[in-house]
């Protein structure tokens, strides 16, 4: 099939960008969306034009590198699917597709479709861990964890840090991302000692990074390729409230 793409081209972080129209011929329905962009890039190189820069690595929906707005929808809007997992069989011959980078103040564009998501790492660095020094761990089975808790913690832990939740949110809030990590660790016995300081510090870092506030719209969870549930935001809010009441200290 033939596809027309309007792609955001921006030379660098300081440059201004614009949408440029290209036609891609010989698109097969079995191709992934990124393979379609590969073909576009090969066409551009053949014409001595610079290829489109986009982030990608695993191409199987787990590293969280890829992620673009496709016709205004994060990762293309298909349920539980990253951009690299989206296949061209979701489109038809003659379609016109607009491809843009994530748009959020906290995610500045570096080039074309690539943004800087370093703010996510800073949120994790401010508390998204359990302080367990290597070599000091007790025997793993000495603390049984009820299966339901372990499973729920796993559900939250699946976040791939792609940023679609931020891109989909009208406020560009990072609440779902932060809540996923707060919930994952807060659901496990090992995560209890730092539970309050964790949520307190992570939310403070999130706010300082320029992400917007959460007004419970729910676009984040709908766009999330790992289907991280909104209920985790409720957990974060409960933890935050109790942390704030105790002054953000760990002393329960």
């Amino acid at each position: 099939m033939k596809i027309t793409v309007n792609v955001w081209r921006q030379k660098g972080a300081q440059a201004s960008g614009r949408l440029v129209k290209y036609q891609v011929d010989h698109v097969s329905p079995d191709m992934s969306f990124l393979e379609m962009l590969d073909i576009l890039n090969q066409q551009l190189i053949a014409k001595n034009e610079e290829p489109v820069a986009f982030d990608h690595d695993c191409r199987e929906g787990i590293c969280g590198s890829c992620g673009v707005m496709i016709n205004g929808l994060a990762h293309g809007g298909r349920l539980a699917t990253t951009t690299c997992q989206l296949h061209m069989r979701s489109f038809k011959d003659g379609d016109v597709i607009t491809v843009e980078p994530w748009r959020a103040k906290a995610f500045p564009v570096l080039k074309d479709l690539i943004v800087d998501r370093g703010a996510f790492d800073r949120i994790i660095q401010s508390g998204g861990y359990i302080s367990a020094a290597t070599g000091s761990a007790p025997e793993a089975n000495s603390t049984p964890i009820p299966k339901e808790n372990a499973d729920l913690a796993f559900d939250a832990a699946q976040c791939i840090g792609c940023g679609a939740c931020v891109a989909a949110c009208p406020n560009a809030s990072a609440m779902l991302f932060t809540a996923a990590k707060v919930s994952h660790l807060g659901l496990l016995p090992q995560g209890q000692p730092e539970r309050k300081s964790r949520v307190f510090n992570m939310v403070a870092t999130m706010d300082a990074a320029g992400f917007g506030g959460c007004t419970n719209i729910g676009e984040c969870s709908a766009a999330c390729p790992k289907e991280i549930g909104l209920h985790f935001i409720g957990r974060l809010n409960r933890d935050l409230l109790s942390a704030t009441l105790s002054g953000g200290t760990t002393a329960d």
Binding site: Y129, I130, A132, T134, G135, S136, A137, P138, E139, A140, N141, T143, P144, I145, P146, K147, A150, D151, A153, F154, A157, H184, L185, L188, Q190, G191
Partner: peptide, 22 residues
Amino acid sequence: VNIIDQCVSQGVPFAREYAGYL
């Protein structure tokens, strides 16, 4: 054997049986 202990203490959510064991 030490690796599993280390990972569990970091909060790695390994699959568990109904009794709560790994």
